[in-house]
Amino acid sequence: MTIRILAAGDHFVRSDLLADALRQVVPGGADIRELTLPWPVVPFGRVGEVDEASDVEEELIEALRGVEICVTQMAPLTRRVLDACPDLKLFCVSRGGPVNANLQAATEAGVTVTFAPGRNAVATAEHTVAMLLAATRRIPQTNADLARGVWRGDYYMYDHVGPELEGGTVGLVGYGAIGSRVARMLEGFGAEVLVYDPYVTGVPGQVELEELLRRSRFVSLHARVTPETTGMIDAKRIALMPAGSVLVNCARGALLDYDALCDALDSGHLFGAAVDVFPTEPIPEGSRLLTTPNLVMTPHLAGASKETAAKAARIVAEDVARYLRGEPVAHHANPVLAAS
């Protein structure tokens, strides 16, 4: 019997990348179909009961007719999709976490969900260091002034220049695949690195969060969002940071109180900040973030690189190959199903 596979890509992890990765590892007789979703031309959002998905339930249901395996980045695996697609058995999300999949409903339907941990670790780590430097040396602001023909000598004044990384202390909140890479990069700059992560042990420079904030001139967030970490960097904790510090968030918007961030920048307590993620995406019109000084922003693209897209396609394709060989998949998202 021919195995039908849907490669539901988008304009980043493209359908052809997914299909090509599949063809390298799955049997030649597989029927691989392609569907292109609109992200990032059309922003993702909440679809049904899942987050960060493309609003394409109707198109997905139609494309999944008779399909056993779906590989995707942004397709919504909602209860409605599951109810309409009884042939579906494997749903592979080419992201670091399957936030666009209803894991409980998938488990109830007997659908295995996988994901692609570490796919963007290198890209995000590099972007984090770039954002740290951009905020510390005020690169976007000075570039914008020069682009409109303004040469501002006041940027060279002592009170307006930022600190160096060499000899400075950088605090990393989270030490997973991304945070650990950032640490290695920063050590190359000659910085002292402190780490707060309750889920790892034996890391050099490991301290409690409050101590990290008090000692660090630079702080970068790399934690996962959990009930415990949501809003963890609030006004009280920002106030612990030394005056003139720099704060970077390329992880998740929910980790940081953005009103408190804006207050700290407005008051001058923070020298600068750089963020790639936001509490609401896209940023709403009229948001304080659009007018707060000394804030560097990028539109949630820290993990965007050609290598990230290729790795994502390869990771999910390899799990499809394991599934077809009757082996356990490597990156199971619904472990109750895996154990049953």
Results as ranks from 00 to 15, higher is better:
242 P>N: 11
57 E>P: 10
295 L>T: 06
274 A>W: 02
123 A>M: 05
17 L>R: 13
80 R>Q: 12
93 V>N: 06
136 T>S: 15
218 F>M: 11
335 P>Q: 13
182 V>N: 01
330 A>T: 14
177 A>P: 00
137 R>P: 07
184 R>D: 14
272 G>H: 09
220 S>R: 04
224 R>G: 14
111 V>N: 02
43 P>W: 06
166 E>R: 15
231 G>E: 07
3 I>T: 15
314 R>P: 00
130 A>N: 00
205 G>V: 08
73 Q>H: 14
301 L>I: 14
158 Y>C: 00
299 P>K: 01
284 P>V: 07
186 L>W: 08
113 V>R: 08
223 A>L: 12
133 L>M: 15
235 A>E: 14
225 V>G: 06
219 V>W: 06
143 N>L: 13
182 V>W: 04
216 S>V: 11
242 P>H: 10
137 R>L: 13
313 A>Y: 06
261 L>C: 10
107 T>Q: 12
252 R>Y: 07
105 A>C: 07
296 V>N: 00
159 D>W: 10
290 L>A: 07
153 G>T: 09
217 R>E: 13
261 L>E: 05
207 V>G: 06
170 V>R: 03
155 Y>Q: 00
270 L>F: 12
20 D>H: 09
5 I>C: 04
149 G>H: 05
114 T>M: 11
284 P>I: 08
14 R>C: 05
249 N>S: 12
309 A>Q: 10
229 T>M: 09
271 F>V: 09
293 P>W: 02
144 A>N: 01
21 A>T: 04
209 L>K: 05
43 P>G: 10
26 V>L: 08
93 V>M: 03
161 V>R: 15
145 D>A: 15
267 S>N: 07
235 A>D: 12
76 P>W: 03
16 D>G: 01
68 E>S: 15
116 A>H: 02
131 M>T: 00
29 G>V: 01
216 S>C: 12
106 A>Y: 01
339 A>L: 14
105 A>G: 07
216 S>I: 11
7 A>R: 01
236 K>H: 12
49 E>G: 14
307 E>Q: 15
36 T>P: 05
188 G>S: 05
253 G>S: 04
197 D>L: 06
123 A>V: 07
149 G>E: 02
215 R>Y: 05
